[in-house]
């Protein structure tokens, strides 16, 4: 067995008295697409934020390529974050920069690549997500789906080894979801390793290598899509999946 590209052990997070994550562990192989499902407040988003230490976990360890990440060592942390792309529910594009500059800025300021080379790379990534003709637009001039595609291009430009996607389509109009899903699907095909939280069950089951059902800060069950959606062991998993299938259909 190959060693996992990303190993997460026993992540815990408390906000005051409230335990949001209660010791979550996960191993991700290269090329895996793990889908996190579960009700709101289950800790999916906190889990993803803890993986790249945007939220500091109270406990737990993370290894990338068998190297443990020490978030207190700033330089290591910044280098690690470049290798772990993050896609947010509400896009978080830099409001003062055009789509093109949004993608380029990380290359220039973080990776220290020259402006021309970085610009060429940024244009290439924007073309890959189908936004070549919108490069010079500011975030406010883009639709939600376009914004999310820019943010994916921005993350991809950094050459990440793993991508974390926190409900990338849940802030989008239904008719815009497809364009973002298409980009994510292409990413999966190209072999990108991803962990994605989503409620889009149909999309998830067609792509996922594994479905992870979270509730109340824990992983309750994990398995192949057909196992989780058709024959789950846990009654809560079954209940949640049937509800969400009714809502998001298309299965």
């Amino acid at each position: 067995m190959t060693s996992p590209i990303l190993r997460i052990e026993n992540l815990s997070k408390k906000y005051g008295q409230r335990e949001v994550l209660k010791g979550v562990s996960l191993e991700v192989e290269k090329g895996d697409l793990k889908i996190l499902i579960g009700p709101s407040g289950a800790g999916k988003s906190t889990f993803l934020h803890c993986i790249n230490f945007l939220v500091k976990p109270d406990e737990g360890h993370v290894w990338l390529d068998n190297e443990e990440i020490h978030p207190a060592r700033k330089r290591e942390l910044y280098a690690y974050r470049q290798k772990v792309g993050m896609i947010f529910q509400d896009f978080n594009l830099f409001d003062h920069l055009t789509a093109f500059e949004n993608v380029r800025i990380g290359l220039v300021k973080v990776k220290g690549i020259g402006k021309d080379a970085a610009g060429a790379r940024a244009a290439q990534e924007l073309e890959r997500v189908g936004l070549k003709e919108h490069m010079q637009k500011y975030p406010s001039q883009l639709s939600g789906g376009q914004k999310q595609r820019v943010s994916i291009a921005r993350a991809l430009a950094m050459d990440p080894e793993v991508m974390l996607l926190d409900e990338p389509t849940s802030a989008l109009d239904p008719e815009l979801i497809g364009e973002v899903h298409a980009v994510i699907r292409d990413l999966g095909k190209s072999g990108m390793t991803m962990i994605m939280a989503t409620h889009q069950i149909g999309f998830a089951s067609s792509l996922a290598s594994e479905i992870i059902f979270m509730e109340d800060g824990r992983i309750l069950e994990q398995g192949t899509p057909s196992k989780i959606f058709n024959d789950p062991d846990n009654s809560r998993t079954r209940e949640f999946c049937s509800k969400i299938t009714d809502l998001y259909g298309e299965r």
Partner: peptide, 25 residues
């Protein structure tokens, strides 16, 4: 806050984030 999260997730240092992302806004 999202602007900062996005910058941090790209690997910006705190000072880099303040200079390149926060201050221009």
């Amino acid at each position: 806050r999202g602007q900062m999260l996005a910058a941090e997730s790209l690997g910006f240092s705190k000072i880099g984030m303040i200079v390149s992302i926060i201050l221009p806004q």
